[in-house]
Amino acid sequence: MRLKLNLKSLGLALVVFVACAASYLIAADHIDAPAVTGTGSDITDVYAFQSPANSSNMVFVVNVQGLLAPSATAAASFDEEVMIEVNIDNSSTKDNMEDLVIQATFDNGKVKVFGPEAPAQKGLMSTLLKSTPAEATVTSYGANPVIGESNGIKVFAGPRDDPFFFDLNQFKAIIGGTATSFNNPGADAFAGTNVLALVIEVPKSMLGSDAINIWATSNRKM
């Protein structure tokens, strides 16, 4: 009984404190902020994991343009004005400044991946690396994945199932004060939706030796 009471007060507190933020509580990072929502630079999720196929490799996934209905997926395309960057801090102090970057640009139906390499400048402004990129044709909706490979780096870009899963609607109901707990089973709000996925696999030896901090950014051509 006491637990139930506490939950109720917690629910009330949720209503009072965060109701005004509810409309922006969306998902992992899907439509997270006004300036990027509905644009080609809206990152939905970032993943970093050891390659299931080769333990010497690391896989980075950056997804953009989430919540694509199947009927809208064929027409969706990467924004050629937007460069996607994986930022890597491999310093021993972990100062959260990028020592290496991996950059992906989209041009004429091709994805080009540069790096990992030290950037010419750190921070909010970027220039493209000058090294020879790994390239692939952007896979079209319904086609088999086109995989580019160069210098041990693998590249894929194209529509995929959104790998994110979350009972977003019940979470919003809790935050909005119309529910006090999740349902069991929950309902995945991202089931049946697609994203535009960028997948890059690189040898770990190119990244550092022990541990790294990473973050993804989208960057618009000026």
Partner: peptide, 8 residues
């Protein structure tokens, strides 16, 4: 030049 818009 590229200017950062989203970060995650």
């Amino acid at each position: 030049m590229y200017e950062q818009e989203d970060q995650m």
